[in-house]
Design a protein around this nucleic acid. Structure first.
Lengths: 231, 231
DNA sequence: TTAATAAGTGTAAAAATTACGCTTATTTTT
DNA sequence: AAAAATAAGCGTAATTTTTACACTTATTAA
């Protein structure tokens, strides 16, 4: 396996990926966690994870975790950071590379909930998690909170068609502060990355709110100009 | 070693850390790279790296790389990201967690240059590097460029005492664009994180420029107020 | 003594952000 | 059928931040 002498006898570790799977429902940020089936800590709440195989890249391993546990494909997924303390897992030396994913809950068939003993929790009502998973969640949320301000990733948490008030509610949930309705609209529309549809969503008001769609093409054009999304 | 059945028979990988070591000299961003001694790619330019041992944390491994190669301690060091493609290293399956370090070149005794065949290169005159190290450097620079705008990490590249024009030159080198002398000064001073000394540095002008020192204490007070460094 | 020059200070114009009031479309209630 | 209620949508004035740019100062070399 090692083709050169230099690598002979070097230490190897178990390398895992753990995924912080974010969702958004109505007005709350949610997290998908599951009940661990194996020891140590069998029965306790944990992030979804697995070991990295020898024939798969790290990002692929994470992708598979998300796909297998949600049944969804083409999910927004990004590396968070490495958790590499020696004793983080009492079972063995395991280094874990945490990733976070953003899911459209409504699209999600419930593969995960049934097959994996998984459950969506409100972000601020999470049960305590095993090992350093609590810290991963805190760090993941901090990253999301930061990144959402300079990259248009919030859309990944909404259905394909969404209203501006809905988008505002999402941002309020992530940033944990109220935003001005009128200024928010002005700002987001001024970027010209939303495509207005003729349909309205009437579920939250009598008047109804127009539906919009994120315009990836316009966004990329914007990036090329050097101008970029900033909320 | 594995205390639980679940871990038995799971795949293990060689886990490495590679360090992008940034420096700053006069008006240029520099990178410390070295000539690899072992196969594959012996003789070619490479980032400093090593394998993570079973009894050290990942961040510790990176710290040791930097300490051993520069002879310096208490260096600013941060994880960049994981490089985990299956074939990134032709010698074996090696997953590498890249880190970047910011060092004050002037303090550096030349341990590295002598003991490690290391050499400082201007950032834009780097030789080509082995494996995916080129990409690590690009990503590291992108991260530095972004982070330097919202965290006061630039100071790590300057001597303890520095002038405002010096600081401006550093920012210009990192951000790769000219900054207005007067506005830069105004902005940085308004944050109240620099301590003015009575000494002047006369090396670059007849008049001389006052020396300043970064005030960690004031910075932390600022963070607590929720206000934060933004350039 | 004077010329030269980087360092340092101030101020006006432009742009972005914030605060907030009024109108509109629609449904439910009277 | 009219009126009340309400989220959605639109505009504008006040404030703050950013940008652009001119002048003065301290010092050394000529």
């Amino acid at each position: 396996m090692d083709n050169f002498d230099f690598y002979k006898g070097k230490n190897r570790v178990l390398l895992a990926v753990d995924c912080i799977i974010f969702g958004f429902d109505k007005s709350k940020i949610k997290l998908l966690v599951f009940q661990r089936k194996v020891d140590p800590e069998a029965g306790n709440w944990s992030l979804l994870g697995r070991f990295v195989e020898s024939d798969e890249s790290v990002i692929n391993a994470a992708t598979r975790v998300v796909e297998e546990s949600t049944g969804l494909q083409d999910i927004y997924l990004e590396e968070l950071r490495t958790y590499g303390a020696v004793d983080r897992d009492p079972g063995a030396r395991v280094v874990s590379i945490a990733h976070y994913a953003l899911i459209r809950i409504d699209e999600s068939n419930l593969t995960s909930v049934e097959a994996f003993n998984a459950k969506w929790f409100d972000f601020d009502e999470l049960p305590s998690l095993i090992f350093d998973h609590q810290q991963m969640v805190i760090d993941g949320m901090a990253k999301l909170r930061r990144k959402v301000r300079y990259r248009p990733i919030g859309f990944e948490l909404l259905p394909e068609k969404f209203t501006i008030p809905q988008l505002k509610t999402l941002y309020e949930a992530i940033l944990q502060k109220p935003l001005d309705r009128r200024n928010f609209r002005k700002k987001i529309l001024s970027m010209d990355i939303l495509e207005k549809l003729s349909e309205k969503d009437k579920s939250t008001s009598r008047k109804g709110a127009y539906l919009y769609r994120f315009n990836q093409h316009n966004y990329e054009a914007l990036l090329k100009e050097g101008i970029h999304f900033e909320l």
